[in-house]
Computed example of a mutant assay.
Amino acid sequence: GRRDFGWDRADAFYRDQVGSAYLLDLAAWHLSSTDYIGDTLRLVADHARGLVLDFGGGIGTHAIGAALCGAVERVIFWDINPVHRQLVRLRAEKLGLKERIHCPETFPEGMQLDTILCFDVIEHLPSPAEQLRQFYGWLQPQGRLLINWYFFKGFNGEFPFHLDDPQRIEEFFRVLQSHFLEIFHPYFITARCYRKWKTDS
């Protein structure tokens, strides 16, 4: 169950069971989806500022995009896969962004963030609603959450690891709609931008 989860076991799983060959598939998807990725990077450029968390950041494209934004002070790249963390450290170093992108080995607790990026992650979690609640708690009052989701296993089961439980999906949308207000953006992408509801009004 979820209570038994440990970051150390996640590291071992990705190191021993998954390996690194799939990184080529992930990179190929990025290359084949350049228009989509380009628009998500435009969305990041429009809204990222201050202290940014790239939550489940994969190969680090959005973390790098955020680190290049003038309004961003620092990016914390977090992914449970140690291979991803190692790759993003290398990419940051090669791009001269080592001081702006941090890839900690353990999740940094107690943060107050200005921006959270969460792309292509939430549908893989056991409780997306609980993750939204955590995001809400981590965000500064004027913070921004940039997020997308795809709660669908595919017409032919091509996304077997995606959550599609109606109850958990409904809970996700209840939390989203009670905690966050959407900010319009002009890009034709699945990602959305939110701010916290003002709770003192």
Score class of each variant (00 low, 15 high):
63 A>I: 05
100 R>G: 01
75 V>G: 05
106 T>L: 08
107 F>V: 06
117 L>N: 11
50 G>R: 07
62 H>Q: 11
17 Q>S: 11
58 G>W: 12
52 V>L: 03
127 S>R: 15
37 I>Q: 14
92 A>M: 04
122 I>N: 03
112 Q>I: 08
70 G>V: 07
33 S>D: 13
77 F>D: 00
19 G>C: 04
54 D>E: 08
84 H>M: 13
70 G>M: 07
78 W>Q: 10
92 A>K: 01
73 E>Q: 10
111 M>N: 04
61 T>W: 13
93 E>Y: 08
18 V>C: 11
121 V>H: 09
97 L>A: 02
28 A>H: 13
47 H>I: 02
76 I>K: 01
74 R>L: 11
51 L>V: 04
101 I>C: 06
71 A>S: 15
103 C>N: 06
68 L>H: 03
128 P>Y: 04
117 L>M: 06
129 A>L: 09
104 P>R: 04
30 H>C: 11
46 D>H: 03
87 L>Y: 12
66 A>H: 08
126 P>G: 01
94 K>P: 02
115 T>Y: 00
40 T>Q: 15
60 G>H: 12
85 R>I: 00
73 E>M: 01
107 F>M: 12
56 G>K: 08
91 R>Q: 09
24 L>G: 12
65 G>K: 09
118 C>S: 14
52 V>H: 08
53 L>R: 04
42 R>K: 15
97 L>D: 01
96 G>C: 04
122 I>R: 07
88 V>R: 04
101 I>N: 08
38 G>F: 14
56 G>Q: 10
82 P>I: 03
67 A>F: 10
85 R>N: 09
86 Q>A: 12
65 G>F: 08
122 I>L: 11
117 L>H: 10
110 G>D: 00
68 L>Q: 13
35 D>I: 14
92 A>F: 02
47 H>A: 09
28 A>K: 15
77 F>P: 02
52 V>G: 04
36 Y>P: 05
22 Y>G: 11
70 G>H: 13
24 L>A: 15
98 K>R: 13
68 L>N: 12
115 T>G: 04
79 D>C: 06
21 A>M: 11
101 I>R: 01
36 Y>E: 15
30 H>K: 11
108 P>L: 03
77 F>H: 05
88 V>C: 01
48 A>E: 03
126 P>H: 07
32 S>Q: 13
115 T>S: 05
63 A>G: 12
90 L>K: 12
35 D>Y: 12
53 L>N: 00
30 H>E: 15
48 A>G: 05
122 I>C: 05
20 S>A: 15
25 D>K: 14
38 G>V: 13
76 I>T: 12
122 I>F: 07
54 D>S: 10
94 K>F: 07
128 P>A: 09
79 D>S: 10
